[in-house]
């Protein structure tokens, strides 16, 4: 077993078990902490795939910024296990059946799937220089048009976040 394989299996087990931890733990804060571990494990996978830039961005943006925000929100809302609304027995059963069917579909699909042959790529493919070149040539349209998406999200933050002076509080 090479060092690569050891790392791969270590990261895989870490990712899957902490992902299970996210959905199985009762306490929301533990869930978020497990999610951070999952992100770190996935970043490790990115590094194994020669995608260094993606790994760093994943850690900075997801594990860093977004998850800290999550933690703050959860702590501010003061969520506890007992506040969580309990679902009815029937709803639980329906959920189990629906989830089981979905699992069956994915399992069947993966079982008989034909795996595409791996492409050998050079080891510096994940460097910022190469990534930037691809982004500005092949994927220039999705890259540029995402700005519209972010602009509308920013407008949304202002429209929803800004306090409105209510002239006539009686109007519905």
């Amino acid at each position: 077993m090479s060092i690569y394989e050891i790392l791969f299996w270590f990261l895989t087990i870490m990712a899957i078990s902490s992902a299970l931890g996210v959905i199985l733990s009762r306490n929301p804060i533990t869930s978020v902490l497990f999610l951070i571990v999952t992100f770190f494990a996935i970043s490790g996978h990115y590094i194994l795939l020669n995608a260094q830039f993606l790994a760093i961005v994943n850690i900075i943006v997801y594990a860093g910024a977004i998850m800290v925000l999550f933690l703050f929100v959860i702590m501010l809302m003061n969520l506890n296990a007992d506040v969580e609304p309990q679902k009815g027995r029937l709803l639980q059963l329906a959920g189990v059946i629906a989830g089981g069917v979905l699992f069956l579909v994915i399992l069947a699909a993966l079982k008989s799937a034909t795996v595409l042959p791996l492409e050998k790529t050079s080891s510096d493919i994940g460097l910022i220089k190469n990534l930037g070149r691809v982004l500005f040539t092949q994927f220039v349209l999705p890259f540029e048009i995402s700005s519209v998406l972010f602009l509308s999200a920013m407008i949304g933050a202002i429209v929803i976040g800004k306090k409105e002076e209510t002239k006539n509080p009686l109007t519905p």
């Binding site: 999705p142 519209v148 998406l149 509308s152 999200a153 949304g156 429209v159 929803i160 409105e164 519905p172």
Partner: peptide
Amino acid sequence: IGIEIMSIPQYILAGSDKRN
């Protein structure tokens, strides 16, 4: 990206009447 550009403004417009 098209579906997201179309959806996100809608989420905002749906909540634009903040007093309600």
